[in-house]
């Protein structure tokens, strides 16, 4: 279900959202970016980036699709950031069971200074990356926020974002020293609402319970059989999981695709999956997709993203041999 939550943010659901109290008038969220500040905004895809991790290697934001992500821009010189940084680790620890990842971005920091600072102040549950030039921060600076700042990358410092499993921004907070809360009460409240709410809906009724986080490949068992006129591809989806249908009715959802060469499969109708007041088209249980040709050679390609009620796994594309 959570994978479909982004659907609520699409324009179809905006009238209801707009009648609610604006984000910045809610407790702890006074720093929320306003529409008039310009992009990026909630309901937009978070600008992607690849940055070096302090621990080595690189992090690409879009590689975290399937998880909720809390992002925070920090700097060692910023006293407010300093008061907050330990509490980011607490969020990472507390929300790890809910599939939430925490990424802290050190903004225009000297590498050695940041390494010694983060060793002392940052819990290992947080992924630290470094934006040495501020180029990534610049993509997170709404053009009309802090109009007096000449170095626009500095607009992003001490900002906090929640990004959903589809990579869509759901919360974007600029710092608000007038209501300073180093423990991120407002962010936690939003995480509870966004992540926790979908969990409690999942627990309702007698929905099957998903096995603890499976590998995306293990969630769907696929086999393909050639007949005289078609290749029939059976997808068996693990209990408690669903995948989007081939027509998911949601701009953010990843449609299931089954094809051989350039020929796509025909699917049965999707099942309605209710998220709030939005209905999404999904598959669960066992379905058969039929590729209307028997003379194709080579493997069948299957692409899907599997979700439980509370989290989505990374999208996957698999090749399945036919027999």
């Amino acid at each position: 279900m959570l994978c479909c939550m982004a659907g609520l943010t699409a324009c179809g659901a905006a009238p209801r959202a707009a009648l609610e109290t604006p984000t910045w008038e809610r407790p702890g969220l006074g720093g929320a970016v306003r529409p008039e500040m310009g992009s990026p905004q909630p309901n937009e895809v978070a600008p992607d980036f690849t940055l070096p991790k302090t621990a080595g290697g690189e992090l690409r934001l879009s590689s975290l699709r399937g998880s909720w992500v809390v992002m925070h821009f920090t700097a060692t010189w910023c006293p407010y950031c300093d008061a907050e940084i330990a509490h980011l680790g607490e969020i990472a620890n507390d929300y790890a069971p809910h599939g939430v990842k925490v990424v802290v971005i050190a903004l225009q920091e000297d590498h050695d200074r940041w390494v010694s600072y983060s060793k002392e102040r940052l819990l290992p549950s947080v992924t630290a990356v470094e934006d040495k030039t501020g180029a990534v921060a610049l993509t997170y600076a709404p053009p009309h926020a802090q109009p007096s700042f000449k170095d626009r990358s500095q607009v992003a410092f001490d900002t906090t974002l929640i990004v959903d499993p589809h990579g869509v921004i759901r919360l974007f907070l600029l710092p608000d020293t007038a209501h300073f809360d180093p423990k991120f009460g407002g962010v936690r409240g939003e995480l509870d609402r966004l992540v926790g709410a979908s969990r409690s809906r999942a627990g309702a009724k007698d929905a099957p319970v998903a096995a603890d986080v499976l590998d995306p490949e293990d969630v769907v068992r696929v086999d393909a059989h050639r007949s005289l006129s078609a290749i029939d591809v059976r997808l068996e989806i693990a209990p408690g999981y669903h995948i989007m249908s081939d027509h998911p009715t949601d701009p953010y959802a990843i449609a299931t695709v089954v094809r051989a060469g350039s020929v796509s499969a025909r699917f049965p109708s999707g099942q309605d999956y209710r998220v709030g007041d939005k209905i999404l088209s999904t598959f669960s249980g066992s379905i058969i997709a039929s590729i209307p040709s028997s003379d194709l050679v080579g493997p069948v390609t299957v692409r899907y993203q599997a979700c439980t009620a509370s989290r989505c796994l990374a999208p996957i594309t698999r090749e399945v041999p036919t027999n």
């Binding site: 324009c11 905006a14 009238p15 707009a18 009648l19 604006p22 529409p35 008039e36 309901n43």
Partner: peptide, 10 residues
Amino acid sequence: FALIALLVAC
């Protein structure tokens, strides 16, 4: 306000 917010959002 709701109308404006909707148009901006879209």
